[in-house]
Amino acid sequence: MPVIETKNLTYTYPGGTKPSISDVSIKIKKGEFALITGPSGCGKTTLCRCFNGLIPHFYQGELKGEIKVTGLNILENPIYEMAKHVGLVFQNPENQLFALSVEKDVAFGLENLGVPREEIRKRVNWTLNLTGIYDLRERAPHELSGGQQQRVAIASILAMQPEVMVLDEPTSFLDPLSAKKIFKVIYELNKKLGITVVLVEHRLDLTARYADHIIVMDDGKVVLDGEPREILSSEEARLIGIGIPKATRLYHILKKDGVKLSNTVPLSSDEMANLLKEALKVHD
């Protein structure tokens, strides 16, 4: 059974003249690492807001079609109920930390749910260790770098032990090295804990290698949906102008030139280097 399933989902913001997403039908399986991408304004963020009921409960507006997340109909469940199952991490780390210390922030969701104190303490420590920020637990948010702040935001969602984690461009304010580390944390959570990850990203060069599933949106619609290697090789993807990783581009250019390379499309520099080594029969 899919963890997220939408059927003909169409949504218009209050006062909007045209729908921000229209006719979106997708399925995301349990344990998957799904990547949603597409040009700015294509409706990615709007779709994310539907996953925990911010749309329509917080934003109002008109939602048509069906959407079920972890088996729950978002229309029938308030946001705080959905929050136990689906965690959202936003783009700007600064605006999702409210408390004056890291551990207090991580505890925030559990406090809201009325979890007993001893249990909160246990889960907070577990989460801090898992995300590698235990040493920062007493720091104030303004004493942290952007990368550390985003880790805190991820930890504060993780503490609520959701089945699905949705991250909306979580690294766009970070430098590439911090971004790389964040993606690694996310990937480990996906693999170790089996949390379903839905990641919205432009930077495919850093993320494509982790994905099991890519959904490409354009102008409010899903235009491509499938296996990453296939999607990133398609002519459509190139025409829409999503940032195809350079390693993948190089592979296709060489293929076009008639070079014999294995048929597994590379998504990262490592994979591409290995393909080339294979073709040139060298071993490093």
């Binding site: 807001r49 917080f58 705080y80 136990k84 999702q96 409210f98 749910l113 969602i157």
Partner: peptide, 14 residues
């Protein structure tokens, strides 16, 4: 944005 993040962390659940 803050309100959105608060809601997503079960603000007002109990």
């Amino acid at each position: 944005e803050l309100a959105e993040a608060m809601e997503s962390r079960a603000w007002g659940a109990t």
